[in-house]
Design a protein around this nucleic acid. Structure first.
Length: 988
RNA sequence: GCUCGAGUGGCGGAAUUGGUAGACGCGCUGGAUUCAAAAUCCAGUUUUUUCGGAAGUGUGGGUUCGAUUCCCACCUCGAGUACCA
């Protein structure tokens, strides 16, 4: 009874009088979400007559904070597209899952002892609840989690496949390592052209056949697609683990912002560099955003040049040593006046003369002390040290001094450069600093101030056989000469490094690897998964081993093919297991294939499923994964393709990066040590008039400012929910928000306190997070979906302003009204032929919405819907012939309300697979055109004219118009431009 | 520094094979309805104006009958990358 009264009071007298049913989003949305789930409406079939379409979102990491309104943006877009494709007659695969291994759950475990699996499970529940409220058409029957053993079992298997493969540069693909073994048995590695470790020696068939089993394994490891090696890694002590290059931002860890140093460790690596050229080439065929392609292109960093080797001479006595350098400018070789080596190179110690030993060692020590960040930020200071050694110029045979310097990086090329000071600014600066000669090898070029770095238009000079040649010619000639003489060759170099694949963490995929005699052994596919062991403590062990070192049951019994207790290790049949785990990107590098056949227990996916779904047609996610996930996934896909496991060499045809939704942070301005708050304007005045402030205490920190009296003010983030649509603070709510503000005093302006607003990234600490649950509660999921799309172009980042949602909400209410639902829930609509006007509105809407959706221009299609509903309301249209197709058009965007109205129109089945309305151009044919009449390109008035008129008739009609005469003011126009159907321009 | 992207009302944004700049929405102003509020509806809202108009899409130039759209130079902001030899 009470509820009933409340309802009546909630309605206007007029509405009660009309006996109309109001739009109640809550009941409708819950109802349809349940119907979809119960009927498995969006379950995709692996068999269908329909063409396939695979729409995928980058799956989320289920963090403890839950979703904010920024997260679902991409999911809403992909969901609209998936639903649209269903209307268009496609068999749509639109799955969702969780990237559920990761650091936060582990750090939570370290702090609280709660098992990461438990934390993850709880977070996923929250996520799922939040996602369900938004009405996505996900096929949840295919849900996957990277931390589930039935998923990571296949991640482990892919790892063993990588281990059991090598790359052949001749066929340009990966092969099983057994084929390499056959070749080694027959011919050694003389004819093998494969990416391998740099220290790989040349061996004969005889050498190979005489190798012990261990030696063979050691040798093969140099060729495998994943290999163990002593690598210089980015070590983060705070996190107790190594980090990949893309996990480091501005020299500190992406997560947590901790210091990162270089350290040598035995690590698993992925030979992604073998795929560098293919990763580059195949970007061409991808419908991906250009910025992403550019980022990947830069990251791969292909450069063409030559490898040149310089023999080292020391005190006239020739040593065997030589220094190899990579250069993109072999044509400038006669300009070499010294060489510089990276201080870290082992070679440095070998060539340094006794006299220089002390200085060199001191320099090496000094550089090692500096962090990578220091070294990067301090580019201007030139430093280096002479080694005392000389190299011999390969052409002139002149001695060249060898220096070490930290501007040369050990990680790129060979870690050594031939310095050409006249052609490279860094070499130039180094030469000036150490007073080294700067020979000029460019014709008519002044190098007295700076190096000359142009290559296109300069002619080479003072260079023996290269003199008078332009760049291209000289480049070719010098390489020809080098190859002829055997001290150099043409070489393509890549910036892309092999990816370190080991992490010293607990919450990740365990490697299916045990160690026999120090050599890694793969566990066969049939014994997978190797499950993550239980540990007491998630921290590294006291002796510095990774967290898995805490596991007591972590040994492999080869006889029983089982994980057994560590104390049984005998190193004959029972061996220790690998202690590292895989990095976060392992599972995400192939998960898109798993959705095709998510419950297959034998294979990662069946061949039938893979051949049916092929690849992702549309992939939506953030651009922050450009050099991580999106590159590693392409690499694994190519590898699986080479071995014949997947049908496509690229996993995603089209990629869209959704922009970030920013939050509006609210600020109040407080006088420090008091509870007095000043207004935004007063605070801004203080900021702008810094000279009002006493000199000695101007700015204490970013957010602290002085007032003219020398008092300090502070801007404080406050919760955005304490502020209304006009940025006015709810003072009472604020006082209750935090107990320290209980006695807050405000200096009001017009009886209001207006907060300051700044647009920033949404984050808990800035109190600007908007929870989609609250939006769904108040306005409904349909409003949320429409509003997120309406904010602006999908790819752009844009600020969120909850106040704006009333626009789309009232749009839905207007839409509902069109259907004239009476109190008993029956729609009163006309079966008559609609007016021409209404048909025109419908068909122009069909045309525009379809064009927009194909362009992923969702914001403009929402406007189009609003225009359509405004027009139809104006036309008092209640005709089925219009209102039914309108629902289908809108249903991808606002699935709940359209399902409800669809059922109210008498339909018993879901709207989700109803055929998309067909555009009929005949409804848009016009007989008249409102011509804009311009004078010198400025529109002055419009004139309605028949479209049948000829150019001459139009001109006559325009010239006869009194407004034209007035505008011309007696002057004769020079020219009249008439574009029939478009515009008339009169040039005066 | 290099690479890429973007600059349009108070705000989010719309319009590009060059053809009516500011669609749609928010906010704001006024009005209707109401005892009142919410909700709803109507009108207005780039600037300036002597109410005839005039100017106007970061700045300066150019091409054109006509430029937010094309070209050149510059400024500002954002993203990526950073001694890559």
């Amino acid at each position: 009874m009470h509820y009933f009264c409340f309802r009546i009071n909630g309605e206007t007298n007029k509405q009660i009088h009309d006996k109309k049913m109001k739009y109640f989003h809550n009941d409708i949305e819950k109802k349809w979400q349940k119907i979809w789930a119960d009927n498995q409406t969006f379950k995709a079939s692996n068999n269908s007559e329909k063409p396939k379409y695979y729409v995928l979102d980058m799956f989320p990491y289920p963090s403890g904070a839950g979703l904010h309104v920024g997260h679902p943006l991409g999911y809403i877009a992909s969901d609209i597209y998936a639903r649209y494709k269903r209307h268009k007659g496609f068999n749509v695969l639109h799955p969702q899952g969780y990237d559920s291994f990761g650091l936060p759950a582990e750090q939570y475990a370290i702090q609280t002892g709660q098992h990461p699996a438990k934390t993850t499970e709880a977070n996923i529940k929250t996520y799922r609840k939040q996602l369900d409220r938004i009405g996505f058409s996900f096929d949840w029957s295919r849900e996957l989690r990277t931390s589930n053993a039935d998923f990571y079992k296949h991640t482990q298997w892919i790892f063993t496949e990588l281990f059991n493969s090598y790359y052949c540069n001749i066929d340009n693909k990966a092969f099983p390592i057994t084929e390499l073994v056959t070749e080694l048995e027959k011919n050694g590695n003389a004819k093998v052209n494969s990416p391998c470790d740099e220290d790989t020696p040349q061996i004969s068939a005889n050498d190979w056949n005489n190798f012990s089993d261990k030696e063979k394994q050691e040798f093969l490891l140099k060729y495998r697609m994943t290999y163990l090696s002593e690598t210089t890694v980015n070590w983060c002590a705070e996190l107790g683990t190594v980090l990949a290059n893309d996990e480091i931002v501005n020299g500190v860890s992406e997560r947590g912002g901790h210091a990162v140093i270089q350290k040598k460790m035995m690590q698993w690596s992925m030979r992604i560099s073998a795929y560098a050229q293919r990763l580059l080439d195949d970007l061409q065929g991808l419908d991906w955003p250009q910025p992403i392609k550019d980022i990947q292109t830069n990251w791969i960093g292909r450069s063409q040049g030559a490898m040149v080797s310089f023999n080292v001479i020391a005190k006239k006595e020739r040593l065997k040593q030589s220094v190899s350098v990579f250069t993109t400018r072999p044509d400038t070789i006669f300009g070499v006046s010294f060489m510089t080596l990276a201080p870290e190179l082992d070679l440095v110690k070998e060539i340094t003369t006794p006299e220089q030993k002390e200085a060199v060692e001191a320099y090496i020590k000094a550089t090692a002390k500096r962090s990578a960040r220091d070294r990067e930020s301090d580019v201007k200071n030139i430093s280096g040290c002479f080694t005392g050694a000389y190299a011999e110029h390969p052409f002139t045979k002149e001695p060249i001094p060898i220096y070490i310097g930290d501007y040369v990086l050990a990680g790129y090329g060979t870690g050594a450069v031939m310095a050409v000071p006249c052609g490279d600014q860094r070499d130039y600066d180094f030469a000036k600093h150490f007073d080294l000669p700067i020979p000029n090898i460019f014709k008519d070029v002044d190098i007295s101030e700076n190096a000359h770095e142009d290559k296109g238009n300069t002619i080479i000079d003072n260079s023996d056989f290269l003199t008078d040649l332009p760049y291209k010619k000289a480049f070719k000639t010098v390489i020809y000469e080098m190859e002829k003489n055997g001290f150099g060759y043409k070489k393509i170099n890549y910036r892309l490094r092999d990816a370190v694949f080991s992490r010293q963490r607990y919450w990740g995929e365990p490697f299916p690897v045990y160690y026999k005699d120090g050599m890694p052994q793969m566990i066969a596919k049939e014994h997978l998964p190797i499950r993550l062991p239980e540990v007491e403590n998630y921290l590294p062990t006291s002796d510095g081993k990774p967290p898995l070192g805490n596991a007591s049951v972590w040994a492999w019994d080869c006889e029983t093919a089982a994980v057994v207790s560590n104390d049984k290790i005998n190193n004959t049949t029972i061996f220790p297991l690998e202690l590292n785990t895989m990095p976060g990107w392992a599972g995400s590098s192939w998960y898109f294939n798993r959705y095709m056949d998510a419950h297959n227990t034998e294979e990662f996916a069946s061949q039938e499923a893979l051949n049916y779904w092929q690849d992702v047609d549309l992939y939506i996610g953030g651009s922050e994964h450009a050099t991580g996930h999106l590159l590693y996934s392409r690499f694994w896909q190519k590898f699986l393709f080479d071995l014949g496991y997947v049908p496509k060499k690229e996993f995603a045809k089209k990629l869209i990066n959704q922009g970030m939704i920013l939050g509006e942070s609210a600020f109040v301005y407080r006088l420090v040590y008091t509870n007095q708050f000043i207004s935004k304007n007063r605070f801004k005045n203080l900021l702008n008039n810094k000279n009002l402030l006493p000199k000695e205490e101007k700015l204490i920190s970013k957010n602290w400012n002085n007032d003219e009296k020398g008092l300090i003010y502070q801007s404080i983030h406050i919760d955005v929910s304490l502020v209304n649509n006009s940025n006015e603070l709810d003072i009472e709510a604020f006082k209750n928000w935090r107990k320290e503000y209980k006695d807050a005093e405000f200096i009001l302006e017009d009886d209001k306190y207006i907060v300051g607003i700044e647009v920033e990234k949404m984050s808990k600490s800035k109190y600007n997070v908007v929870n989609p649950d609250l939006i769904c509660e108040e306005y409904g999921a349909d409003s949320l979906r429409l509003f997120e799309m309406f904010l602006g172009p999908l790819e752009q980042s844009k600020p969120w302003k909850t106040a704006g949602i009333s626009g789309v909400y009232s749009f839905l209410k207007k839409l509902w009204k069109l259907y004239q639902i009476d109190e008993s829930g029956v729609a009163h609509i006309s079966e008559e032929k609609p007016s021409k006007e209404s048909l025109k509105t419908l068909h122009k809407t069909i045309k525009k919405v379809e064009e927009d959706i194909e362009k992923f221009s969702f914001n403009t299609s929402v406007s189009t819907f609003m225009i359509a509903v405004n027009e139809l309301t104006q036309q008092k249209c209640n005709h089925r012939e219009i209102l039914e197709p309108l629902l289908v058009l809108l249903s991808p965007y606002a699935p709940h309300i359209t399902e409800e109205l669809w059922s109210k129109l008498g339909h018993k089945t879901s709207i989700s697979t109803v055929a998309y309305p067909v555009f009929d151009a005949s409804h848009l044919i016009e007989s008249n055109k409102t011509y804009p009449i311009s004078f010198n390109g400025k529109m002055r008035f419009t004139l309605d004219l028949s479209l049948d008129l000829s150019k001459e008739d139009i001109e006559k009609a325009v010239m006869a118009d009194e407004r034209t005469i007035k505008q011309l003011d007696g002057k004769t126009p020079k020219k009249v431009i008439v574009v029939p159907g478009k515009i008339v321009n009169i040039v005066g």
